[in-house]
Design a protein around this nucleic acid. Structure first.
Lengths: 145, 145
DNA sequence: TTGCATTGAATGCACACGCATGTACTGTCC
DNA sequence: GGACAGTACATGCGTGTGCATTCAATGCAA
């Protein structure tokens, strides 16, 4: 692969630092808010969201773990344990997949859907604060509420 | 804070997912490449880079940990341990700050500077692959070299 | 059918992280 | 000077993560 000339390199680094900063601030605030108020980590929320999206109208719809995996940026083992936590919390049910008995089907419980619906506005609000325009270094409350 | 209308929300979420994806791919590849080839984590590299930048021409320049802290996105404790690792690896020296004996001054060793200079092109190359245009999900080698 | 490579998920392990706390030092107010 | 709040860094502890491995189920080939 070709070398980068120094101005391209500087631009790349600037872009990278900006990305790191945004990610750090958003992640920090999300984890704090979702954790304190709903007992959810950022990735937990992300998984619940995928399940809600997959479910659509009828809540019978289930998702295979192997389908979920590429959409959340976690290793297979981390995802496995995350699902275990969600199940222990009663937000999700693991069921054997009939057609391929190696697979696991995930279903949102009613509690899981409710938890998600409650957490969602907070999640969006944090995104608005951290991705939208001006923001500081704050990891604290998005609004004094 | 005001609610978001649904189109603004959708845009925000899309932006967030894009950021997460870029961050995940870049982080993964960086950690892998820098780790395997230079025994450095992403944040270790970042700290070395700050020291190099701080040093400028004369290498005598030292940086206070408290100055370093806000520029890397780590908790104070994580930074403290990271520095301990760098020192153990002989890349950095911790010295007491004369003017304020609570503080710690960091200096790059020659080995530290060399390690950084070696790692830097790899770091930039990964950024080019993951931040620049098209990229897949790859966490593997940037170039077969 | 038996044998074997492959895939989906769970688990042992080491490690880096954040939070809370501890320890040393500084500055201020009396 | 002495007490006390505040700052800088280190450390104990619990937890989430990735890697390597394991176990079960599948698909294919002989």
């Amino acid at each position: 692969m070709a070398e980068l000339d120094s101005s391209a390199e500087a631009g790349l680094v600037a872009q990278w630092r900006e990305l790191l900063a945004r990610h750090a601030v958003a992640t920090c605030m999300l984890d704090r808010q979702l954790g304190e108020r709903f007992g959810l980590g950022m990735s937990e929320f992300e998984v619940l969201e995928r399940l809600v999206e997959g479910a659509g109208a009828g809540d019978g719809h289930a998702l295979r773990v192997s389908e979920l995996a590429p959409t959340v940026h976690l290793s297979q083992s981390a995802l496995s344990r995350l699902i275990a936590r969600l199940e222990k919390a009663g937000l999700v049910v693991r069921a054997m997949c009939e057609s391929d008995r190696r697979g696991i089907m995930l279903t949102l419980t009613e509690a899981g859907r409710e938890r998600y619906e409650q957490a969602r506005p907070v999640h969006r609000e944090v995104l608005g604060l951290t991705l939208g325009g001006g923001f500081g270094q704050a990891c604290e409350a998005p609004s004094p509420d």
